[in-house]
Design a protein around this nucleic acid. Structure first.
Length: 416
DNA sequence: TCTGGGGTCCTAGGACCC
DNA sequence: TCTGGGGTCCTAGGACCC
């Protein structure tokens, strides 16, 4: 059996660890730039403060009820999280850290599961002062559902074991299908058209029909709801396949230089994460956006194939800024920018016609040549630099494929 | 005035090749 | 009136998650 252990109001609970007097008060945590509410203590939930609501919309309510407002402190939460995870690992044979506040535990071989669940809950409270709920079932999807029930029902006291599924059918008939892991708002609406409204409705659909209508992922979900394991425990999380850094600005940005500054900062952050997991990136992606709520809108993004897989901050900044310049249009109030690193590979990735990470100086010289060519032959155009050595030719080859996405097609190729 | 920041997976359709 | 067709790779974008 699998257990899902999930912290209750994680960020608000983290703040309460060091200020226990907050425990029984209304506390909310705001996102970066204090934009939205991302966590609420039970008292705050009782005041009907919605999740993810922009702070400015309910400022009055917060003041009226003297709600404590915290800016989020992700370093702190990450630290507390890793201590909790290490504690949880002592309660199982295997585990998957699923998010900052959730973990799946493999409880194979344990007998009294209700008791086990309560032991876990008690230990995390006693040692880390973090309230958690525990859902236990045969599959991840069911464990998620069990956790949801544990959170909602007072009777269960924070631990729910879904073993005999037939017995739970009356409950499944009362839970909206949107509570199922993997079913979001769009899918719920689509399912409603087929009269699939509850967990029980979805459970009893023929998997083949669901696959045809909705795809393989939802088919797996249906199977999981019937106790058939389709999603494995990932005990060693695979390295990230994409790495992002993006953020809204505190203040709107209008000039390209400021935008490029922020893109550089994101490139640095993303590259740090890249190196941490010992990967190289082959593609850099940049997006810039005006506010979604502003009338005068402009969103654009593009990606660019790097000349060779790299984790070199200078190279990534340079290319990211170049893409940024292409995307930039003056006359807009930019609200957000981001940098992504795609097509990641292991550092030990060998492909003889690419540069090795240590050779970035050579590559950098070539970049300068390309720059020179850009300046000489016209701004906004990317030229191919190709000179004698094999390595440089190798770079040339990688440019020959349409490196830019469609917005950057028709690049002239010349020899310098 | 002020509206999160990450990620993953899947699919459709275009490009390209033989 | 005819203008292959099938496989594969790539990309954009949708949908979901926390």
């Amino acid at each position: 059996m699998l257990a899902l252990v999930d912290c209750n109001a994680c960020f608000a609970s983290c703040e309460s660890i060091f200020r226990p007097e907050l425990r029984d008060q209304a506390v909310v945590i705001a996102s970066n730039n204090d934009g939205c509410i991302v966590a609420r203590s039970p008292k705050a939930k009782a005041l009907d403060i919605p999740d993810l609501i922009p702070l400015f919309k309910i400022r009055n309510v917060l003041e009226q009820h003297q709600v404590h407002i915290f800016s989020s402190n992700y370093e702190l939460y990450g630290d507390i999280s890793s201590r909790i995870m290490s504690l949880l690992s002592r309660f199982c044979v295997d585990m998957e850290v699923y998010s900052i506040d959730e973990a799946f535990l493999d409880l194979s071989g344990f007998e009294n599961l209700v008791r086990r669940g309560h032991d876990i809950k008690k230990a995390v409270w006693k040692q880390q002062r973090m309230p958690v709920c525990v859902g236990i079932a045969q599959t991840k999807t069911l464990a998620k559902l069990a956790n949801h029930l544990a959170k909602k029902s007072n009777k269960l006291q924070g631990v729910c074991v879904l073993d005999d599924l037939a017995m739970w059918e009356p409950v499944f008939k009362k839970i909206s299908v949107s509570k199922v892991w993997g079913v979001g708002s769009r899918l719920s609406k689509h399912l409603a058209l087929l009269d699939v409204l509850t967990v029980q409705d979805l459970r009893t659909q023929p998997p083949k029909r669901i696959r045809k209508e909705f795809g393989v992922t939802l088919e797996r979900t249906v199977r999981e709801l019937n106790g058939e394991r389709c999603f494995d425990l990932e005990t060693q999380p695979p390295p990230k396949k994409e790495i992002f850094s993006s953020r809204s600005f505190g203040k709107k940005v209008t000039c390209v230089e400021e935008l490029k500054q922020s893109v550089a900062a994101h490139a640095v952050r993303a590259t740090e994460k890249l190196r941490k997991q010992k990967s190289l990136a082959k593609r850099v992606y940049v997006m810039i956006q005006t506010s979604r709520f502003h009338e005068h809108r402009y969103n654009n993004s593009a990606s660019l194939v790097l000349p060779y897989p790299t984790n070199d901050t200078r190279i990534i900044i340079r290319f990211a800024q170049q893409v940024c310049e292409h995307l930039f249009k003056s006359g807009y109030l930019y609200a957000k920018a981001g940098v992504g690193l795609f097509d990641l590979s292991n550092v030990h990735y060998k492909q003889h016609d690419f540069f090795e990470p240590g050779q970035s100086d050579q590559a950098f010289k070539l970049m300068s040549l390309i720059d020179t060519a850009n300046r000489r032959y016209g701004k906004g155009k990317m030229f191919l630099a190709a000179q004698g050595t094999q390595q440089k030719w190798a770079m040339a080859r990688s440019f020959k494929s349409p490196s830019y996405t469609t917005r950057f097609s028709d690049l002239p190729i010349i020899k310098i």
